[in-house]
Design a binder for these strands. Structure first.
Length: 263
DNA sequence: ATGGTAGCCACGCTA
């Protein structure tokens, strides 16, 4: 089963690219971030025509996440618990059935946190604390769970082409990286870390200053696997060629293959 | 120290 995370940076601007990519890549489950659309305006018909079920958690103009799945949804949960005053659409969980039982998949868009010195950075850290609390509860279920998304976290210096450019950025702050490690230490395996040591694997290249042409990238899109999901890990790939398409997102799809068969 | 680009949606905000 192929599960993919992709920050698409605007579903309306990217629908043609998405449809071409779905046909080419043939994923089973797709976690989208930054759909930048309300649910009513999400182009679900074109996607459903390719055989996908569509669940969205949208917002006007900014943020917004979605899950596309060839498997039917048994359950959908919108919003990260822990703060009823948080109105930003950054989290959706889908529950599916496989021949081995339940499979949970989350599409998350973790707050960027810039600029430092504003309320945005503490919001990022508190969101990460809420995610950790939620994940801890879910891990206790001992089920296969995939936390896929744009984490807006550069875990290590090796995950940036020019790490010194990021030292004053929220994506690379010590507190940010610590919170990311705390999540891992609950018992998750970061899927790309299961691949052989591969430096210079990036998932985001800024639109500005020729970042793509210079390969000035960072790795910020991650798939966290619970032990029950990691047990079935087969492979991981970054679909980098998509960044060279016309009108690309600034992020590319990251795909993990897990040995599950739909129920 | 700034500006470089893109999406959304109508002007500035977010990234």
């Amino acid at each position: 089963m192929k599960i993919v995370t992709w920050n698409i940076n605007g579903i309306k601007a990217r629908i043609e690219n998405l449809l071409i990519w779905l046909k080419e890549s043939d994923p089973d489950i797709v976690c989208l971030q930054e759909i930048k659309s309300v649910d009513e305006q999400f182009p679900r018909l074109e996607i459903e025509a390719l055989g996908y079920n569509v669940e969205t958690h949208g917002q006007k103009g900014f943020n917004g996440v979605a899950i596309l799945s060839k498997l039917p949804f048994d359950e959908v949960n919108r919003g990260l618990p822990g703060d009823d005053s948080d109105e930003q659409a950054r989290f959706i969980e889908g529950v599916f059935s496989t021949e081995k039982g339940v499979l949970r998949v989350v599409s998350l868009y973790l707050p960027n946190g810039n600029p430092l010195g504003t309320e945005k950075f503490p919001y990022k850290l508190s969101w990460m604390a809420r995610l950790e609390a939620w994940a801890k509860e879910r891990l206790a279920l001992e089920e296969p769970l995939v936390l896929a998304g744009d984490y807006n976290v550069i875990p290590e210096a090796a995950d940036a082409r020019f790490p010194q450019q990021w030292v004053n950025d929220a994506l690379f702050q010590p507190e940010t990286r610590q919170a990311f490690r705390r999540l891992e230490h609950l018992g998750f395996t970061e899927a790309l870390r299961m691949a052989s040591d591969s430096p210079e694997i990036y998932t985001f290249w800024d639109y500005q200053a020729g970042a793509w042409q210079k390969n000035n990238g960072i790795r910020i899109d991650h798939l966290m696997l619970s032990p029950e999901a990691a047990d079935r890990f087969s492979s991981i790939s970054v679909e980098k060629h998509v960044r060279a398409w016309e009108k690309p997102s600034d992020h590319v799809p990251v795909a993990v293959e897990l040995a599950f068969v739909p129920a």
